[in-house]
Design a protein around this nucleic acid. Structure first.
Lengths: 241, 241
DNA sequence: GGTGGCAAAATTGTCCGACAGTCCGATTAT
DNA sequence: ATAATCGGACTGTCGGACAATTTTGCCACC
């Protein structure tokens, strides 16, 4: 039934080295900001060639565990930024051909909850950001790209205000997937812009007044609108423009 | 106020090459399974040294866009597997010191919804998996590690049965964070095992009978229990064992 | 025609050595 | 003390090399 043995894999040196360093970082033996020894020195310590070290470093760098501050030469220990990892997730999702419905269901699960906690926990600065992004949407209605960006930023701001990193990081990849779908939709559905603005105002108000339930239900309405908009857009004859 | 210029960054060759190849893959010009030219050939095509190509490949490999099938030498185009991606996310979250409360809130947002859709859309095979994992938990109660794994697998199975890749991929990183917390809790709280088993049975039944609402509410109870368990565990005097 | 076996060619993982460009630190000049 | 200068250190990239292993082309054989 189940195999008695599994194939043994001795990984290449560069991967072993990457793993060792990764474990040091995850185990907090190395802290963010700590400078790493030079490549030459690492090569000496591990007893391998510098080329091998460089390949190991590339792995850790793309994982966001190492990085350099702009214009600096030395490599430093870093903790992965949410932006980087979430872009990886959305690329994975995009490549797996997720449908709009799948995306929508996930947004429906996450965003209202984020809004609810945002109302309870937002700081003054976070509220400010929310207001600013909302204003930007209103100002940029003409420019489709800018408008879409503003919508996405609004979601991001709400998630940030929720004070929950897990929710924020779960939500971030959805934004990147939403953008293209929203771009198609926002131009085709005439009333879209007005409804979005309306929803943003109401959500922001609820968060300002710390009304969790209202924030949640308004966000639900907001998201539901996207589904309506998507249905309108996709049943719409192509030549309408 | 706002700077007139932004710092220009000319990325190193290996990153540029990685980007070019990545875009080809994301644009579907290269399909999963397609073999990549040899490193030497790539070096010729891009007009760089093989070492540079190798560093580019390392980047794409860690992104999960390239990979090789076991024991094969040639590199092939791949689409990132959810497993790989989600482990990156949970590492990021772990390094950012998320609290149990943050994790719990996110689970509370996602898991019940996943259960709801699972009830509506599960296939016979997915139900089978669910049953099997539930049975495994009951069988392994003695072995803490195995029990925790079974709990996590149960969540994974529910998410898979939801037929929503976005939900599944949003949920996966939470599991990896839950495991350590659950390990601490399950041994300290005597009634934990019985309650988990109970919840799993009820959730599975609801999903079997395609009762979305029941699946959802039972999952909510199940998750809520984790919070109770965590509170019990953390207010418990250390020396109880 | 298909199949198995085998030797040659190709490919990867790793190493060595090298060099230009750039950053950093110390030294010197103001 | 501050500013200019210099040398060393380090990264990005290159060229070449070699063992181990995979892939391929070929040939005999069923």
């Amino acid at each position: 039934m189940t195999d008695l043995f599994v194939p043994l894999d001795d990984q290449p040196a560069y991967r072993q080295i990457a793993n060792v360093i990764e474990q040091r970082i995850v185990a907090r033996a190395l802290h963010p900001g700590d400078p790493l020894p030079s490549e030459t020195d690492l090569a000496r310590q591990f007893g391998v060639n510098r080329s091998t070290i460089r390949e190991a470093i590339r792995e850790l760098e793309t994982h966001g565990l190492l990085g350099r501050v702009r214009g600096e030469k030395r490599l430093r220990v870093t903790h992965p930024e949410p932006r980087r990892v979430s872009s990886g997730v959305s690329r994975a999702l995009a490549l797996n051909d997720v449908t709009f419905l799948e995306l929508w269901e996930a947004m429906m699960a996450i965003e209202p909850v984020a809004a609810q906690y945002a109302a309870a926990r937002r700081t003054a600065a976070q509220l400010q950001t929310l207001v600013r992004v909302g204003a930007r949407f209103q100002r940029e209605v003409a420019d489709t790209t800018a408008a879409v960006t503003a919508v996405v930023d609004f979601f991001t701001a709400v998630a940030a205000a929720s004070g929950n990193q897990v929710l924020a990081l779960s939500q971030a990849p959805l934004n990147l997937l939403l953008a293209p779908a929203l771009t198609r939709m926002i131009d085709r559905v005439p009333q879209a812009r007005a409804r979005i603005h309306d929803a943003q105002v109401n959500i922001t108000d609820a968060i300002r007044q710390r009304r969790s339930e209202q924030a949640r239900t308004w966000m639900e309405k907001h998201i539901r609108d996207f589904k309506r908009g998507h249905e309108l857009e996709s049943t719409m004859p192509e030549g309408i423009l």
